[in-house]
């Protein structure tokens, strides 16, 4: 009797669990589509622009131009991302500067990507041989043209794997935005879990969705690497 009861209970609990899983899928995916993915894409693109500018500043001969870039990179890399998010969202209002959750998150993640990716871009520019610059100069190119046409396209190939890593990390780091009230994937999971107390199930479900997104991205990375490798000996 006891056995049967127990079994029935387990089955019905599993049924409920499955139902909860399916019912939560929609709000979580919608959180991903509305917030996680746009947050990732926008921050990454803006971050790359900041990174390129920062890398150029760090490669400049003038110490005056280098200094702000060096300080910026050091400050971002030397402090936790969560603290940076809190400063922007909870801290700045006391200076009279109140920014909504989503733009706050964009600013924090852009600055973060900008600092880390600038080091990647700088290293990949430095990895291109001096002979490539000189060959570009001998056909009459200026520094800017040489950078645009000859150096950056080759540096891009070198930086695809490390930048892809940054991109995938960023997808996961956006879950921190839940702590400044952005209704992204993980916050949706937290909200549902607070109602149903099914923490394990819902957090595993969130983890699975992150995993799927990152898996798709890693496929895209492989395709991109293949495309860039067309001009190197196998």
């Amino acid at each position: 009797m006891f056995h049967l009861n127990n079994m029935l209970y387990t089955i019905s609990a599993n049924m409920e669990g499955w139902e909860l899983f399916v019912n939560s899928l929609l709000p979580m995916i919608s959180g991903a589509i509305k917030y996680t993915i746009p947050l990732t894409l926008i921050s990454f693109v803006l971050g790359l622009l900041v990174a390129l500018l920062t890398a150029m500043m760090r490669l400049s001969k003038s110490a005056l131009i280098q200094a702000p870039a060096v300080i910026y990179v050091s400050a971002i890399r030397g402090t936790p991302l969560l603290v940076q998010l809190f400063i922007i969202f909870y801290g700045l209002p006391s200076l009279g500067l109140t920014i909504d959750p989503f733009p706050s998150a964009i600013i924090a993640f852009t600055l973060n990507v900008g600092a880390y990716a600038s080091e990647i871009i700088r290293a990949s520019i430095l990895s291109i041989s001096k002979g490539q610059w000189e060959a570009a100069f001998t056909i009459g190119m200026t520094k800017t043209t040489a950078l645009k046409r000859i150096i950056l396209p080759q540096a891009a190939r070198v930086s695809v794997p490390p930048l892809s890593n940054s991109f995938i990390s960023l997808v996961k780091d956006t879950s921190l935005a839940s702590l400044i009230l952005v209704a992204e994937l993980f916050r949706k999971a937290q909200e549902i879990a607070a109602r149903t107390y099914d923490f394990l199930l819902l957090y595993i479900e969130a983890a699975l969705i992150y995993w799927v997104i990152c898996f798709i991205l890693s496929l895209a990375q492989t395709a991109l690497e293949k495309r860039f490798d067309r001009y190197v000996a196998k």
Partner: peptide, 16 residues
């Protein structure tokens, strides 16, 4: 620079 063209010992072709 634009007066002359240079051919390098190590070619320095643009690999991409």
């Amino acid at each position: 620079r634009r007066k002359s063209g240079m051919v390098f010992q190590s070619y320095n072709l643009f690999p991409h």
